[in-house]
């Protein structure tokens, strides 16, 4: 279980995260939602130890360090592969560093997405690059898979395929933390939604609870963010009304 306790992170005077506390148990698919700059990426970077922060983040009671970092993988829309290497060379690199790398899963996913194995990744399309990024995160053999806007730039069919594959291949002990704006697309396969707003956790709900309450994820988000539906109408009316 990843435990995040009172994590605060500032960039200069700007507070990116403020007292964030949550737990990520094994075997959940968690959606992390929030506006641009809400702190989703910063939270993931804190978990991975890419940035300094105050507070505490542990993995099964131990701080996340080089000793247990192989249990956490990361897929980002910024991409973390080597553009000059081929897919096969990446596989070899991962196998060298991550002993639990799943070659079987790698081969299956590469075949499914029909990605070229012997072309440098810089020659891939944006969609293919995103797919490859997620494939590597899924094949590393990690228990916790962090994904930060992994489908930015992919078309809707592509994304749908991916959701299906993701649901089909995940083991019961694997946890996915998925930061995305595509609420409506992912609501059917996530088990829990965490809302982050201006660096604070403002909502944390299981989709089961939402189902029982007869609510849709989007309604929950609107409620949590105090979204005013009349806002657009009022703004348009203010703009178009005659003095």
């Amino acid at each position: 279980m990843i435990e995040i306790e009172s994590v605060t992170k500032s960039y200069g005077l700007k507070r990116a995260l403020e007292g964030v506390s949550l737990t990520l148990p094994k075997g959940q698919i968690v959606g992390l939602f929030g506006e641009n700059g809400a702190g989703k990426t910063t939270l993931m970077k804190c978990i991975l130890g890419f940035t300094r922060f105050s507070g505490k983040i542990t993995l099964d009671g131990e701080p996340i360090s080089h000793k247990n970092i192989d249990r956490v993988s990361f897929a980002t829309s910024e991409h973390s592969f080597f553009p000059n290497l081929t897919a096969t060379a990446h596989k070899e690199f991962y196998q060298m560093h991550f002993p639990r790398f799943s070659e079987k899963r790698f081969n299956a996913l590469m075949d499914f997405f029909e990605l070229p194995r012997h072309s440098p990744l810089r020659q891939f399309s944006t969609g293919q690059k995103n797919q490859f990024e997620v494939i590597m995160a899924l094949c590393q053999g990690a228990d916790y898979i962090l994904m930060d806007e992994p489908f930015a730039g992919n078309d809707v069919f592509n994304r749908e395929d991916f959701y299906k594959v993701l649901l089909g291949i995940l083991e019961p002990f694997e946890t996915v933390l998925l930061a995305t704006h595509l609420l409506e697309e992912v609501q059917s396969f996530i088990g829990r939604a965490i809302l982050i707003h201006q660096g604070k956790i403002v909502g944390d709900v299981s989709t089961l609870e939402l189902d029982e309450a007869g609510k849709k994820l989007m309604d929950y988000v609107r409620e949590t963010y105090n979204y005013r539906p009349d806002r657009v109408g009022k703004a348009l009316s203010d703009l178009t009304s005659e003095k």
């Binding site: 991975l48 080089h66 993988s73 910024e78 991409h79 973390s80 080597f82 560093h97």
Partner: peptide, 18 residues
């Protein structure tokens, strides 16, 4: 940092000296 952020991968390798 060129063409991607492979630094993210390098920083999360179990071998911290890599």
């Amino acid at each position: 940092f060129q063409g991607s952020k492979s630094i993210y991968l390098m920083k999360r390798l179990p071998d911290r000296w890599e």
